[in-house]
C-alpha cells in the first residue's frame, strides 16, 4: 500500500466530509432559528406541531432518518428517485444520495440547534425587551439590535458541543453510499487487510475538531467584552 496515495485518498474523502459539515451548518442554523421562533409562537397549533416535530426528530436515530429521506419522493409523491434526480438537475445518483443525506442532517441538526437557541432567547431578561419597547423600537429591531448578540453569546458553548458532534456524525453518510473519509478508509482496510487507514482518518477528525475548538475559543474571547 502506497502511504502517500492513501493519505491523498483520505484527503479526498475528508473533502466530502467537510462539504457535508459546512453545508449542514449553513442551512441548519437559520432553520434552527426559524424552528425556535415557531416553537415559541403564540399561535398554539404552530408551537405544538413544531414541538412534536422536534420530539420526533430528536427521538429517532439520524441514521434511520437518512434512510427514510430516500423513500420520501417515491412513497409520498410517487416520483422515482431517478426522476427526482433529473428534477433537481443533478448529474449522478451519488449526487442525489448526497442531497438526501444533507437534507436529513440539516433537519436533524436544526432541531437540536433550535432547542439551544430557544433556551438562549428565553434566557434574555424581560427588561431588555421592555427597554427596547419604551424606546419605540419595533419587535424586529429589538431582536436584531438588542437580543440577538446576547443570545449568540449565551449559546456559543452549547452550540460548539453540537457542532463538534456534527463533525463526527458525518460518518453516518456512508450508510447512503456517500464516499466520505470513513468510507474511503474502509475501502483500504478491505483491500489491503490493514487497520491503519482507520487510525489515520481519526487524526483527520482530531485535527479538524482541534481547529474548531480554537475557533470557538477565539469567538468566546471576542464576545467576552460584555457580560450578559
Amino acid at each position: 500500500m502506497d502511504f502517500w496515495g492513501m493519505i491523498y485518498d483520505l484527503c479526498i474523502g475528508f473533502g466530502v466530509t467537510l462539504k457535508l459539515f459546512a453545508l449542514t451548518l449553513v442551512f441548519s442554523i437559520p432553520l434552527g432559528f426559524i424552528l425556535a421562533f415557531m416553537s415559541m409562537s403564540k399561535i398554539k397549533p404552530i408551537s405544538l406541531i413544531t414541538k412534536l416535530f422536534i420530539w420526533v426528530i430528536r427521538g429517532t436515530p439520524l441514521l434511520l432518518q437518512c434512510l427514510i429521506v430516500t423513500f420520501v419522493p417515491s412513497m409520498l409523491f410517487g416520483i422515482p428517485n431517478k426522476d427526482f434526480k433529473e428534477f433537481l438537475g443533478l448529474e449522478t445518483m451519488a449526487d442525489l444520495q448526497f442531497m438526501f443525506v444533507l437534507f436529513a442532517f440539516v433537519v436533524n441538526y436544526a432541531c437540536y440547534f433550535s432547542v439551544i437557541i430557544e433556551g438562549g432567547i428565553k434566557n434574555i431578561s424581560v427588561g431588555q425587551h421592555e427597554a427596547g419597547k419604551v424606546l419605540g423600537m419595533t419587535k424586529w429591531q429589538i431582536f436584531r439590535h438588542v437580543v440577538l448578540m446576547q443570545v449568540v453569546r449565551k449559546i456559543t458553548a452549547p452550540m460548539s458541543n453540537e457542532i463538534i458532534t456534527l463533525v463526527k456524525d458525518t460518518a453516518l453518510a456512508r450508510a447512503l453510499s456517500v464516499i466520505e473519509i470513513i468510507a474511503v478508509a474502509f475501502e483500504k482496510v478491505n483491500k489491503y487487510a490493514v487497520l491503519s487507514p482507520l487510525l489515520y482518518s481519526c487524526l483527520f477528525y482530531l485535527a479538524f475538531s482541534g481547529l474548531l475548538t480554537l475557533v470557538f475559543y477565539y469567538v468566546e474571547k471576542k464576545l467576552s467584552y460584555y457580560s450578559v
Binding site: G127, A131, H145, M149, S227, V228
Partner: peptide, 10 residues
C-alpha cells in the same frame, strides 16, 4: 428609567 437600568450590555 427602570429600577434595574436595563442597559444593552453588548
Amino acid at each position: 428609567v427602570f429600577q434595574s437600568f436595563n442597559l444593552f450590555p453588548q
